[in-house]
Nucleic acid binder design. Structure first.
Length: 590
RNA sequence: GAUCCCGUAGCUCAACUGGAUAGAGCACCCGCCUUCUAAGCGGGUGGUUGCAGGUUCAAGUCCUGCCGGGAUCGCCA
């Protein structure tokens, strides 16, 4: 692996060597960005921890480290502060050098992983017959950002949308369609085919039928039994049901693909729960034979409780008492499928936090069955999108906010904002709409991803698609201004040159550029995209300050002009990289 | 009832393995467009981090108890 050139790593090496020279562990030398930028660029807290370990005076240790650090060309000043903090101020030369590296690096200073892995992302959560709504936004946006990040860092990523297409809901729908259109051939057991090629139901029909069916199934026990029966028959292969079900899937997929295209989200696989089906009979027989599956209360279950459990851990239902496969079984079947095809070393399920118990059960069962070890399976749960009342968000009329409605509204607001600001007046209507949409998507994605993945957040439409302050459009605005600057520079024949750091604003900007790996590593290791947002925002902010403080093209000194232009271009590169990882596309102008 | 998560400025959110004076945005107040996009920049007001203890040189962060909110707890996914 190439040696790190992060300023923190370089300084840590120096400090680590100094600790080692004192007979202490080099790891105490870890340097981090200072909490007190007024006092230092970087700080090291290791002297206090080391002192505690060996029973010495922390300031004494720190003083020795400081003396050693002062000898480094990276360091302009070093001192001991408070109980034993080591404060370091970087030399302008070190900053300039780092800035040059970032400017020359196609990856804008961001490194990859040492050993790439085969990684699987499961976006489970979208269902057949259900339109995407605000609640589905999170898995899509979070999962997409993470798959981009993992790819960028070098892993071999396979993403699977993993539609919910195989459970009781399918039986419910079949029966609901049967009630409305009983004469369709799909319900005629004696029909020999072929079945019609066009779907008897549209997406709107499905959107209407599903809630209806679901409600009946909840209250009416007889209906529920019929739904179970239909589900079982579908799974057993009844031709008419299969044909009708296929229509449900296709119709739904058209809508989902429209949303994905609009959001710029792509999947490698459009599989569903049903694709696990071929693997299940064999799996079930195997688990029965090895006595991992037990027959209990009419169903085949796998016990996953452990003595160390503090909470109740129910068994998984492999095959229910109707002989149908539920989501436990299909998730296990999917694991078999993936093991035989992709053979991932790590699988991540980007699914609502409320399903934490479900995944815990499935992972344990997978481990027990010897499919994939628990350590290779991770549930990346996320919080719910709530309304002002703290409950899952509903529109004013009590319904759910559909995703395409949200996007349409954001597009319209964005376009109006452009007109108000008299921007985009010189471009075609089509390009203006395209820009407005990019801005809208940036607003939506950034708003969602800025929140810590695991927590719930309160959704407020106006704030969600706002374009001022800490928002996606702010980032785009910063990037677009640099692009505009670059075009002008090109036109004037100005070329970037060697970077020298003189102004405070330049210093602060390079410090931000250097921090990119902390952000990527944090986001990657913890699977938390908000670190990307935080860094992108800080970078854009640092650039905006620099831009206001340091004239570039109007600067009379050609050396300064070339240096600042190089710094701006390096910032653009890193900003676009980060926006790309967040899933935001940068227009050329706005 | 059990288990888990959350409680930070008026509002919405951050805070890396415990570190120094808890940071942003919005809102509010004051300044900045005859120089590169004002969707911007600079400055200001605003905090007993739910409450009470404990561990530590150091606690928003770790431990205990309490209060408040949410989620989950075998055949719907």
């Amino acid at each position: 692996m190439t040696k790190s050139t992060d300023l923190a790593d370089l300084l840590s090496d120096v400090a680590g060597a100094a600790f080692a020279a004192q007979g202490l562990e080099a790891s105490y030398g870890a340097m981090r960005r200072s909490d007190r930028p007024d006092l230092a660029d970087f700080q090291c807290n290791g002297a206090m921890a080391a002192a505690k370990k060996v029973g010495k005076n922390p300031r004494e240790i720190a003083t020795a480290i400081v003396e050693a650090m002062k000898a480094s060309p990276l360091v302009a000043a070093a001192e001991v502060a408070g109980p034993g903090f080591i404060n370091v101020k970087l030399s302008a030369a070190a900053l300039s050098k780092r800035a040059e590296e970032i400017a020359a690096d196609t990856r804008a200073g961001a490194r990859g992983v040492e050993t790439p892995r085969r990684v699987m992302f499961d976006f489970g959560g979208w269902n057949v017959a259900k339109e995407m709504h605000i609640g589905h936004l999170r898995s899509t946006v979070i999962g997409d950002s993470l798959q981009r990040l993992f790819r960028f860092r070098g892993d071999h990523v396979t993403s699977d949308v993993h539609l919910g297409d195989w459970g009781l809901q399918m039986g419910q729908l079949i029966n609901e369609v049967k009630l409305e259109q009983p004469d369709l051939p799909y319900f005629d057991a004696g029909f020999t085919g072929p079945y019609p090629e066009t779907s008897p139901v549209s997406m709107d029909d499905l959107g209407r039928l599903y809630p209806q069916a679901s409600a009946k199934s909840k209250t009416d026990e007889a209906r529920r039994d019929e739904d179970r029966k239909a589900t079982q028959e579908l799974q057993a292969g009844r031709p008419g049901y299969r044909a009708l079900w296929k229509h449900f899937c296709n119709v739904t997929r058209v809508g989902l693909e429209r949303e994905c295209a609009s959001l710029g989200v792509k999947f490698d696989l459009w599989k569903g729960e049903s694709d696990a089906e071929p693997y299940i009979p064999e799996l079930v027989e195997d688990l029965k034979a090895r006595e991992i599956a037990e027959f209990d209360a009419g169903a085949w279950i796998v016990r996953v409780a452990r003595e160390t459990d503090k909470k109740e851990m129910p068994p998984i239902i492999l095959v229910n008492r109707d002989g149908a496969i539920g989501y436990h079984g299909s998730d296990l079947g999917t694991i078999v499928d993936r093991k035989r095809t992709v053979d991932p070393q790590l699988t991540m399920y980007v699914v609502d936090q409320r399903q934490a118990l479900h995944f815990e059960q499935v992972f344990r069962a997978s481990d027990r069955a010897g499919l994939m070890p628990e350590s290779a399976l991770e549930h990346l749960g996320f919080g719910t999108v709530n309304g002002p009342d703290g409950k899952p968000f509903k529109t004013r009329d009590g319904g759910v906010l559909k995703l395409y409605e949200l996007i349409a509204q954001a597009d319209a607001t964005s376009l109006a904002r452009m007109q108000e600001a008299e921007l985009g007046a010189d471009v075609s209507e089509a390009e203006r709409a395209d820009i407005a949409h990019k801005v809208a998507v940036a607003a939506i994605k950034f708003s969602d991803l800025s929140n810590v993945r695991t927590t719930n957040y309160i959704f407020d439409l106006d704030r969600f698609i706002s374009f001022e302050g800490k928002t996606g459009p702010y980032l785009l605005y910063a990037a677009v201004r640099i692009k505009s600057l670059a075009r002008r520079a090109e036109g004037e024949g100005v070329k970037p040159g060697p970077i020298s750091i003189e102004l405070d604003a330049e210093r602060a900007l390079v410090m931000q550029l250097d921090a990119v790996n902390d952000a990527l590593r944090g986001a990657y290791d913890k699977r938390l995209p908000h670190f990307l947002c935080e860094h992108a925002y800080s970078l854009a902010q640092a650039f905006s300050s620099f831009y206001a403080a340091a004239p570039i093209l109007v600067e009379s000194d050609p050396v300064k002009k070339a240096s600042r232009l190089a710094l701006a271009l390096a910032t653009l590169k890193q900003l676009e990289l980060l926006l790309g990882l967040i899933g935001i596309e940068t227009p050329d102008r706005m």
